[in-house]
Design a protein around this nucleic acid. Structure first.
Lengths: 342, 342
DNA sequence: GTTAGCACTCTAACAAAATGAGTGCTAACA
DNA sequence: TGTTAGCACTCATTTTGTTAGAGTGCTAAC
């Protein structure tokens, strides 16, 4: 175990490196922070820390930089929970207000805020199947051969699509059909509406084949859309602010990864179970981001996973700040969702 | 006027520079392209072209690069209309098919394709007010105190929002109200639905204040939403492939501009009138992109501007390819939209 | 256990020199 | 009159050499 002084020195080195991105030497520590010990003593301690695997030297005559192990220790034991400045909070509030029309906007804003506040790439995964329950369907006439099929769910969402009306079908008949279908599906969660259920329904109302086929497609598509996990990215531009990414090639390779929505989704889904998850360097399973760190927070509503947000950046990341911001956003989202439910 | 040989040499220089991004010297031209004349002769011609303002030298002992004037001349007189390879066309088709669920997806795909094919940033502006006409509104009951207000337009779009129902109002009453409002607004283009019209309506059905206020907000929002011009960006990553943007700072500054949706919108709207518009270097009015070129094509349907697409990149741009791709996309979109209408 | 002193290491910054691609000019040639 | 070979000249880029500075490790003294 590390003694208190070693811990303190390690912490200072890590934090100094996080903020400057320069290897930090014994003199720097002694000068910047008043520890009451000389550079030589610090050197000795640093030497020990290196032996223990917490520090690394890019080359003999440079200062030292924290190893992945050091960051791990830092986030596990050293980090102190911070709090946002009033300024930051005001900024967040204004960003959320800027554009808020539907749920997607909220997620998009979250991604944006997360990246702006942390100067890193952010990812937000929205699980849309947050338990929307089927209420009823309704046909709205459009013209002689088309109608709009509206599917109403209890969260107040309406999805709609244009369907073709079988020749000669009267509005009353369509209402009747809608009623029958509605009665069967009412109260089911959209994700529950399975193929079997639909085919059973098919048997039941088989007399109107054409219309029913349209309906089938619509409900399936809607169910898929509702179930769909959507990914929102933010701050790919912030990447360029990090000295680690001064080299265009590195930027390109990371952006290449982020471009693949599937990869990002997998990445996020993999870390969904735990509340707060920090993976550092090679702890990341995905090749290509093994020189990066990722902080991920999953948020739930009534026990269900609503979504997950993450910040991806160089291992030299402001973990404390990231966590603090995420925590705030988490709370913010919670109240927003609860408000929506009401 | 330039004689044929000068034109030819200028063309070769421009095309060589476009593909290599390196200043091109007289030897290069003589070696690469068999013109039957010696480097010395080419040098003389180049010297003339420089005097005429078509070529520039970064420094005395470098080759020459085309000036903005040269590019202007190139796109006006020298460029030969190309055609896409089968491979390219197949690629485009597959990209369009990849994800096509609604009109936004089509625009997004267009932006993506445009950037992929040209290795530059692409921008697509979608004018959504393509003449949607109000049909009727309908209230769908949700629970005892809420209903969903659906606004149906003749293009088969339904917009909806949740409204609060005044205490004790019965469904029949709501239907009656919906009918009255519908009759007044029917046949109007959404963009026509002005404040005056709405206030007149207000007088008319003033008995149900609360509900009507909700409705007012909804229709206004919808009208705004329909009128809204949406911007789709593509290929901010391709930027990094251009040697001009090897410097991170330049990337940052351009991305900064593109990030401002308003700026991009203004930029695109400004060039909307003409069919195909190419602005080179300082011809661009917007500061910050004056070392870039922009190729913009506006597409119409039945005389109305549906949208506009543009490619933004270094002046050293494959103008021919860009134009060819845009032309193809233009046709592709046209058939797609006409199909949709049918 | 702590610290001052010192030799040693290695990078980054700077300067000087070599390299080479390309030009402009002149004189000769067809 | 247009074209070309030859050659001196220019200037960015690359290479090489040098220096300054930050930092270390070790030792001996406190």
């Amino acid at each position: 175990m590390l003694n208190d002084r070693k811990k303190r020195i390690l912490q200072l080195i890590i934090e100094d490196y996080i903020s400057t991105a320069e290897p930090v030497g014994s003199r720097t520590i002694a000068r910047k922070y008043d520890l009451g010990i000389s550079p030589a003593t610090i050197r000795n301690e640093m030497s020990d820390l290196e032996l223990l695997g917490y520090l690394e030297q890019p080359h003999t005559s440079a200062g030292r930089i924290p190893s992945a192990q050091a960051y791990r220790f830092y986030v596990d034991s050293l980090i102190e929970p911070g709090s946002l400045t009033d300024n930051d909070m005001a900024l967040i509030n204004s960003w959320y207000k800027e554009r808020r029309r539907n749920i997607d906007d909220i997620f998009q804003s979250t991604a944006k805020i997360l990246s702006r506040m942390t100067q890193n790439v952010s990812m937000v995964l929205a699980n849309k199947d947050a338990g929307a329950v089927f209420r009823y369907i309704k046909f709205l006439p459009l013209d002689s051969s088309h109608a709009i099929l509206c599917i109403v769910t209890d969260d107040g969402n309406v999805d709609n699509c244009v369907v073709e009306i079988p020749l000669g079908m009267r509005p009353e008949e369509m209402d009747y059909l809608a009623g029958r279908i509605s009665r069967v599906l009412e109260g089911k969660e959209l994700s529950e509406i399975s193929d079997e259920l639909l085919s059973a329904l098919h048997m039941d109302v088989a007399e109107d084949k054409v219309l029913f086929t349209s309906f089938l497609q619509a409900i399936k598509r809607m169910s898929r859309k509702q179930n769909e996990q959507r990914v929102f990215l933010g701050g790919t531009k912030q990447l360029l602010n990090q000295p680690e990414f001064r080299d265009v090639e590195r930027v390109k390779s990371l952006l290449g990864i982020l471009e693949e929505e599937k990869v990002v989704r997998d990445l996020l889904v993999a870390g969904e179970d735990s509340g707060l998850k920090i993976t550092i360097g090679t702890e990341n399973k995905f090749t290509g981001i093994q020189d990066c760190s990722m902080v991920q927070a999953t948020y739930r509503l009534n026990g269900k996973i609503v979504g997950t947000m993450a910040v991806l950046g160089p291992t030299r990341m402001e973990y404390g700040k990231v966590i603090t911001v995420m925590d705030y956003l988490h709370k913010y989202l919670k109240t927003m969702f609860e408000q929506d439910k009401e």
